[in-house]
């Protein structure tokens, strides 16, 4: 298998790695770089558990070639917290009861983060569209949406 040398910039850290061309970004993040916060659910672009940000925009990392992400700023769920201090979205999703099994949570957080960066004061409909690529089979979504709304209010104050 041909390997390519690339440097991926993840959460503001450069990772020089050698990977084969066909590897997907989620696999490289988890297995090569060791950042296992990003989850692989369906591996079929359906569930959004693998959501990461590429230059601030959410993408499904299970279906994105890792080599293609070179030169972009990649943000994973590990990049949300500031040291031991959780990001407001993380704190609020916990407090709202928006986490049950937790498998969808990293992807939800990344979609929510991109939404709030772009739309600091979203309507409920905009929150629903922002999270529409993320499936959750536990919570029924209401408390996740509550957490995003609470965070928007908190960050705007």
């Amino acid at each position: 298998m041909n390997h390519t040398n690339v440097t991926l910039r993840v959460n503001e850290v450069d990772y020089p790695i050698s990977i084969s061309t066909e590897r997907n970004l989620s696999g490289v993040l988890r297995e090569t770089i060791g950042l296992t916060g990003t989850k692989e659910g369906c591996d079929d672009c359906e569930c959004g558990a693998c959501m990461v940000l590429l230059d601030g925009q959410p993408i499904n990392s299970c279906s994105y070639l890792a080599v293609q992400a070179e030169g972009c700023a990649i943000t994973t769920v590990e990049g949300l917290a500031d040291g031991d201090e959780l990001h407001a979205l993380q704190r609020n999703i916990l407090e709202a009861g928006g986490v049950q099994c937790g498998f969808c949570t990293p992807g939800m957080l990344m979609s929510a983060r991109a939404l709030l960066d772009r739309t600091p004061d979203p309507t409920d409909e905009e929150i629903r569209i922002g999270l529409s690529g993320n499936l959750c089979r536990c919570t029924g979504y209401a408390r996740i949406i509550d957490a995003v709304r609470t965070t928007a209010v908190e960050l705007s104050n």
Binding site: T21, E22, D44, Q68
Partner: peptide, 26 residues
């Protein structure tokens, strides 16, 4: 390959392998 949303998904589903030589146009 641009966004790869058809190409990579299709390859991972086993519908069609990725082309041997790719040029990113994104």
């Amino acid at each position: 390959i641009a966004g790869g949303t058809d190409l990579v998904v299709g390859a991972r589903q086993g519908k069609a392998p990725l082309p041997q030589n790719l040029v990113a146009i994104d």
